[in-house]
Simulated scan of single mutants.
Amino acid sequence: MSNSVYIRPIALAGSPQSEEGEAIRLAGGMVYASRFAVIVREGGKVVSRVRCGVAEMPEVLGALPDELGVEGEAQWANLTLAHPPLELGARTVRMDQPQVVGILNVTPDSFSDGGAFMDDPEAMREQAAAMCEGGAAMIDIGGESTRPSAKEVWEGDEIARVVPAIEAVSAMGAAISIDTRKVGVMEAALQAGAHVVNDVSALRHDPRSLAFVADRGVPVILMHAPGDGPNPHEGGDYANVVLDVFDALKERRDVALEAGIAARNILLDPGIGFGKTLAENLALINALPLFHALGHPLMLGASRKRMIGALSNEAPVHERLGGSIALAVKGMEAGYQLLRVHDVAETVQARNVWRGLRDAALTDFGELPT
């Protein structure tokens, strides 16, 4: 295992003036970072951790060995890299602020809705319309449950589930992502009106998927999950979950680039809840800003996840709104561009209040000397 470096933001600021200019704007968004940890691993083991501010960063990076210094400089540039908007059919989804992505599952065994939208097309359409009206920037449609112990779905069945939903949502004028691991489903979904591929296996499950996505030139969300077989939760064994997930996403990003997928079309997701313990999920949530160093827009999918129940006296799925909002706000605070949620209107309201606070902070000069 080679040596590696990581630049992790460890102090966030409400505005650049609160740090008198000693803060960087994360990913061109509404979050600012003023302190950082520059971490070096050798053979998978952390061997150094240097804390510094913006002014000290050039000196800290200059002290690294040549190869690590080059990577450190790239990550430092990535942390401030502003991302262009996603042009999805007639919809434009800006990446300079948090956007809410609504989850629409058309499966019989979804952990969140138990199949309510698969057998009742009218209920499915009403749910999609409510999410659009509630402010969803995109609807993520899936026809295969990826919860632990879920059985893999035959490609034909998955297509039969998602295509009618995509056609219905497309008629509403919504931007759509297809949540699938299979090229046949990706192809049918894009033909039906989907715009984005969202693959929990990061294009590992289907060996045809890298070439397919590259050929189609569509945006793709690469999520971290330890397993690339039927069960994406298998094989979660981490020396350091935060840095291991970072390395895994970096590796998949590089593979995607080598396959011809344009950098502007790659989005990343740390995969909360997939093959990770409660402690590992919490560690990832607390380290969310680190992943901006990879240089791509980021998605957080923590809505109604098992970790919320584990921290809330085993609250059932439909009683996890408070925890879901808390995690979504954590994603906003970390500068994440896409928040994948079940409760769209409530999350949009939380986002709007959060944005109001951010806007006020940017125009608040009361602490500066007159």
Results as ranks from 00 to 15, higher is better:
59 E>K: 14
47 V>Y: 05
108 P>D: 10
184 G>C: 11
70 V>N: 11
200 V>M: 07
39 I>V: 15
202 A>T: 05
255 V>F: 02
357 L>F: 15
157 D>E: 15
118 M>G: 00
85 P>V: 07
161 R>S: 04
202 A>M: 06
96 D>P: 06
62 G>L: 12
41 R>D: 09
365 F>V: 03
356 G>F: 04
301 G>T: 06
294 L>I: 13
333 E>Y: 08
21 G>A: 06
250 K>F: 00
301 G>N: 01
260 G>A: 02
224 H>L: 02
140 D>C: 10
215 D>N: 15
38 V>W: 03
150 A>M: 08
15 S>D: 09
192 A>W: 08
254 D>V: 08
178 I>M: 07
165 A>W: 13
323 G>H: 03
201 S>M: 06
313 N>W: 02
122 E>P: 10
51 R>V: 15
44 G>E: 07
358 R>N: 05
15 S>H: 06
138 M>P: 00
41 R>C: 14
190 L>Y: 09
281 N>C: 14
267 L>S: 12
267 L>P: 11
305 K>S: 01
160 A>T: 04
199 D>M: 04
289 P>I: 09
55 A>P: 03
210 L>T: 00
23 A>C: 12
91 R>C: 12
227 G>A: 03
8 R>M: 13
72 G>S: 05
133 E>P: 07
88 L>D: 08
282 L>D: 00
112 S>G: 01
297 P>Q: 06
20 E>D: 10
162 V>F: 09
94 R>C: 12
119 D>Q: 02
27 A>S: 15
365 F>H: 13
246 F>H: 15
54 V>E: 10
330 K>L: 02
199 D>R: 01
290 L>M: 11
64 L>M: 12
361 A>T: 04
38 V>T: 14
78 N>C: 14
224 H>D: 05
250 K>R: 13
37 A>W: 03
125 R>P: 13
322 G>R: 07
316 P>Y: 08
24 I>F: 01
346 E>S: 11
271 G>K: 10
349 Q>R: 15
83 H>R: 06
310 A>L: 15
348 V>T: 05
137 A>V: 03
171 A>M: 00
99 Q>L: 04
323 G>L: 04
16 P>Y: 00
15 S>Q: 07
30 M>R: 15
240 N>D: 15
130 A>L: 13
244 D>C: 09
167 E>F: 11
324 S>R: 04
328 A>P: 09
360 A>K: 10
73 E>D: 14
321 L>Y: 08
238 Y>R: 03
362 L>D: 14
12 L>R: 13
252 R>L: 04
286 N>R: 14
18 S>F: 15
198 N>C: 01
264 R>F: 00
234 E>N: 10
281 N>H: 09
54 V>H: 12
338 L>K: 04
249 L>R: 03
101 V>S: 12
207 P>H: 10
181 R>N: 06
93 V>R: 01
304 R>K: 13
26 L>I: 13
146 T>I: 05
4 S>N: 08
165 A>H: 13
348 V>N: 06
113 D>R: 07
281 N>P: 13
297 P>K: 05
201 S>T: 14
212 F>P: 06
292 H>T: 05
105 N>A: 02
318 H>M: 12
96 D>G: 11
201 S>Y: 01
97 Q>H: 09
1 M>I: 08
292 H>D: 07
48 S>R: 10
